[in-house]
Amino acid sequence: MAILVTGGAGYIGSHTCVELLEAGHDIVVVDNLSNSHYEALVRVAEITGRTFPIHIMDLTDKQRLRSIFEEHSIEAVIHFAGVKAVGESVQVPLKYYHQNMISTITLCEVMDEYRVYRLIFSSSATVYGMPDEVPITEHAPLSAINPYGRTKLMIEQMLGDMVAANSAWRIAVLRYFNPVGAHKSGRIGEDPEGLPNNLIPYIAQVAVGKLKEVSVYGDDYDTKDGTGVRDYIHVVDLAAGHLKALHKLTELQGLHCYNLGTGQGYSVLEMIAAYRQASGRPIPYVITGRREGDCGECYSDAGKAERELNWKAERDIHDMCRDSWRWQSANPDGYRNRAIALAERL
């Protein structure tokens, strides 16, 4: 029996593969490598000392997906696959609706055909839109404000309808806050395509000398230092949450939503200061105007995950920055150098 990990070559997916393998699970990875690297999976095997089947394919290919369920005895699915850049989703919304929605529909149809009903879905705090209050609980109003977030929310609603129609489904929806950091080995980490969309990889590229300075969007919020406050969570803690959810689905029925965050907010300037300390490098920054759609504070109440999954984030801001810097300094160009060599061999 094996766990199917869609999008397993991605940032969160690769770290979750490590956690699954080290816990003794067998895995099968599906990824189309559109925004990830095969090299990440090579390094997952190196870290864990275990090999696993890898299928380079798109989830919208139903026939190939059926063949994977035929070839491997799949017992559950952890579904990471999808496109995820908020800004790009505004520019090319159809790409996001097609890729994220159709791939999930296809996956669920094949799961149903093969009577595989345990699913963990990679959702996002973007489903909460502009929060009315913090910390955010799972009962907060849902109102995504961009196409990426709306795809996540639509999929959550679709999964709820599936559960209502067929009680065999056991689904955990994990709403992530802001994943950062890297594996302690420094071998796998976040490798954004082009200019980073998120704060920590941007800070990391400034620290390593690839970018000039960090743009801080607004310093006039009603927060401790005027800059935006977010809930940053170490990616290894996040990966461990998937393992806890997987085990919980053996006893739960229906659909259950969980926030995965630390429950604590850090400001942009706090993150810059912590990264400066971790890297020993200067992190120049410039204050600019607020971005449209940004809110002052956004952080989680993760108490439900602690109560029901026995999960709690263990790593703090210093662990996040230290592990991120270890990855970035050892891999200033991410996976690309070895990825090119591997592509030539495939």
Rank of each mutant, 00 (worst) to 15 (best):
K62A: 15
E39T: 14
K95S: 14
A172L: 02
S300Q: 07
V180I: 11
P131C: 12
A330T: 10
A125K: 11
Y299M: 11
E133Y: 08
D220T: 15
I200Y: 01
I155F: 04
A9M: 07
R170M: 01
R175P: 12
W311M: 05
F69N: 04
R276A: 15
T48I: 11
S324Q: 14
L199D: 07
D58F: 08
P53D: 11
C108P: 00
Y275R: 01
L195P: 05
R338S: 05
K95R: 05
A204S: 10
V173G: 03
A274L: 13
T262K: 00
D219Q: 13
I287Y: 03
V235W: 02
A305K: 06
Q277Y: 05
Y266N: 11
N197F: 00
E88T: 12
Y217P: 03
D323A: 00
R187K: 13
D61K: 07
F121L: 05
L238S: 02
L41F: 09
N310K: 04
A239H: 02
R307L: 14
Y217M: 09
R307F: 03
D112V: 02
V214R: 02
V214D: 00
T106Q: 03
G10K: 04
A165V: 02
T288N: 03
M158F: 14
L4Y: 04
A182Y: 07
Y335T: 13
